[in-house]
């Protein structure tokens, strides 16, 4: 039976709360794993929670105008929007979100919507490093969008639909039905794009929170920064759930979802700890090279 609208809204909030907490724990545990690789003890797993509480608990805050305030709001809307139209757990009443109401194109739009909104907001801050960060971010985003979009086109042709739920349903019944095995080229192209999307090494020059070119959030502080940190968790969770659904067979219960998304995110750390950082121009050349060719091959293979 279809739940009523207020109940669905309550479920959506519950689902959002779970993915926020899970996303923050994921960020914390990945930072801890990176530390272990470097021979350090590392920050506590719950450090992202403390950072958000601290940022939100600052006593004063400055603004550079309406657009400056709206930047993090758009970013959060992008993260929440991405998550809300993806079924986190297939068949679950609570975690299916509003996946019946939107399709893959809407989700792709939401992925890039946040970044564009943030670009507008960060530019309002007037800091030169914000502008540098925005130009770097948008350039890298445009580049990794190409293999990602090609991969999406490929699986849309493969499954004959843009409905995420139908794509997941088609992959049920054994792991050999996953897109990973039925369309490996598309998965490779999308996973390389995912490295760029997550902003870990080698594509971490856009947002390097502890270095001088910190990126778009240069002027953001206090509760606005807390909002951006929260969004980072939501957005990470949303992207992971999307990838799990499109390429790795989705999940039918929460533990499977947790294991799969953890492993997908772990690819970032695995690559990031092994490779140094690209400059933005090198990253663009990289994305428009081999990953794009792989993406084109994936499309050609299924279109003809």
């Amino acid at each position: 039976m279809e739940p009523s609208i207020p109940l669905r809204i309550a479920y959506a909030f519950a689902s959002l709360a779970v993915i926020t907490v899970y996303g923050l724990l994921l960020i914390g545990s990945m930072a801890r794993i990176s530390a272990k690789v470097q021979g350090r003890v590392g920050q506590p797993v719950w450090q992202p929670f403390i950072d958000i509480v601290k940022s939100s608990g600052k006593r004063n805050s400055i603004s550079h105008g309406v657009m400056f305030w709206l930047g993090p709001v758009f970013r959060l809307a992008g993260g929440v929007g991405t998550y809300m139209f993806v079924p986190a757990v297939l068949g679950s009443v609570v975690f299916q979100n509003f996946s019946m109401s939107g399709d893959l194109l809407l989700v792709m739009y939401f992925i890039f919507f946040g970044q564009l909104g943030m670009a507008l907001g960060a530019s309002e801050g007037g800091h030169p490093y914000s502008a540098i960060g925005v130009s770097r971010g948008l350039a890298q985003m445009t580049a990794f969008e190409v293999p990602f979009a090609l991969s999406i086109i490929s699986i849309a042709v493969q499954y004959g639909t843009l409905d995420i739920t139908k794509i997941v349903m088609a992959q049920q019944g054994g792991f050999l039905n996953w897109t990973l095995f039925t369309n490996p080229l598309a998965v490779v192209a999308a996973m390389i794009a995912f490295l760029g999307m997550s902003g870990h090494n080698p594509f971490s020059v856009v947002i390097a929170p502890q270095e001088i070119p910190i990126g778009p959030p240069t002027e953001y502080q206090s509760n606005l920064l807390g909002m951006l940190q929260t969004n980072r968790a939501v957005f990470n969770g949303a992207k992971l759930v999307l990838y799990m659904n499109l390429f790795f067979g989705g999940a039918t219960n929460v533990p499977v979802m947790v294991v799969k998304t953890f492993l997908i995110y772990f690819v970032n750390i695995f690559v990031g700890q092994a490779f140094p950082r690209f400059r933005t121009d090198q990253a663009i050349r990289f994305f428009l090279g081999v990953p794009t060719l792989i993406g084109i091959a994936a499309v050609v293979l299924f279109a003809f």
Partner: peptide
């Protein structure tokens, strides 16, 4: 560095005065 590792106390560097405490 891994010898002293201030991250375990929740200390980390931040490039901009807006965000640092």
């Amino acid at each position: 560095t891994s010898r002293f590792d201030m991250y375990r106390f929740g200390i980390q560097p931040r490039p901009t005065p807006r965000q640092s405490s």
